[in-house]
Amino acid sequence: MKLTRFVMTAALLASLAFFNQGLDAKEKQKAKQAPVALDGNCAVCLVKGQKVVKGSAEHSVVYDGQTYLFPSEEVKNVFVANPAKYVPALNGDCSVCFAHHDGVRNPGKIDHVSFYQGRVFLFPNTQIKSVFDQSPQKYADVDLACDGKCIVCKIDGGKDVPGKPEFTAIYKGKRYQFPSETVMQKFQSNPAKYVGKKAGAQKTSSTTTPASQLVSIKGTTGCAACEYGVHPKKDPNTLGLAVKSGDGKIYVIEGAHDSHPSLYKKRFESLKVSVKGKQIAQQGKFVWLEPQFIEKLQ
């Protein structure tokens, strides 16, 4: 009996080891396909200490198509927690070249590095580096996409909404900013859906309009267009206030930008609210309400 248990345990451990080896092999293969960033030097060390410190392949992570190496697992985890803070501008390409040559991507070198506002900038030679150093503010934001406005809000909602630096995602070396973490995650789940596309006409679909009824709900606020891809019925040119209830339904609050402007401006902050209003339409999980009152909960 004991021998049987021993054999079964050994077989299980062997299977787990084989499975883990398979995962490690996939990660290593992924890293092989992605070029090594910063000549293998630590991105965190550059930003935090302005020091060139060699990383190790044992502590690596692939981000935005490049492999970043770190001297320890602890430093690697610092990067993973907020990679947008540590990646070099334009993924290490020259910001001056990008600005003066219509977006040409010319690789920089770790030997020609500048630091500005907590970010790392690389250049192909000393001469171009000196151009940046003389007027860094002129080139610091050439990698900022959409002038810092939310690309998701523009494509899905047709509106210009300012992003926030704390919600920054890097895609192909460019910085994209968003008004909330939810919208940023929506972009990160499918960046190709938004980059390179223009804001177009909204999708049309049939909507059922049930008999008017009073509805009372509690939930958290969000942006109807940016986060859920829907607009108010009566003001389709606005992005709209949405309230997500505990049962997963999304309530689009008609006219909130006029009736509750302060709450509307803070809709990205996931505020807890109570809403009572008349239901005017429904489509799947989406319900449109004409509000009678909206109360912010503690």
Rank of each mutant, 00 (worst) to 15 (best):
V53A: 07
G163N: 12
I280E: 01
A10R: 00
D143H: 03
H100E: 15
G22M: 07
F19H: 00
N125D: 10
Q283K: 15
P83A: 07
V47F: 08
F286M: 10
A25H: 00
L38D: 13
V230S: 07
Q282P: 15
T207D: 15
E290V: 08
G157E: 10
D247S: 09
L263S: 09
F115V: 07
G103W: 12
K149M: 09
N77M: 11
V142E: 02
N82A: 05
L12F: 00
V96M: 04
R105G: 00
A84F: 09
K2E: 13
G40V: 12
R267I: 05
N82M: 04
I128L: 09
G222L: 12
V152E: 07
G200N: 14
K154Y: 11
P83V: 07
T208W: 12
S270G: 01
D102Q: 12
L23K: 12
S274F: 13
P71R: 05
L69H: 02
S56F: 11
A224F: 06
Q137G: 02
V96Y: 09
Q117M: 06
K48V: 03
V36W: 14
A17F: 00
V230N: 13
T126C: 11
D24A: 04
F123G: 05
A37K: 06
P136L: 01
D141L: 04
V113L: 08
S205Y: 13
V78Q: 08
K85W: 13
E295A: 09
V47K: 08
A211K: 15
E269G: 04
A256V: 12
G22I: 00
T168W: 02
A10S: 03
G118I: 05
A89G: 04
G277Q: 01
L263V: 07
E58D: 14
Y139W: 00
D39V: 02
K26A: 10
K159N: 14
L271F: 01
S95Q: 12
A89M: 11
V195L: 02
F70D: 06
P35S: 11
Y139S: 02
Q137F: 09
R119Q: 10
D235Q: 12
L239D: 15
V120W: 12
F70W: 10
A84V: 03
K129I: 15
A37L: 07
Y228I: 14
V142N: 08
Y139M: 09
F293W: 07
H59P: 05
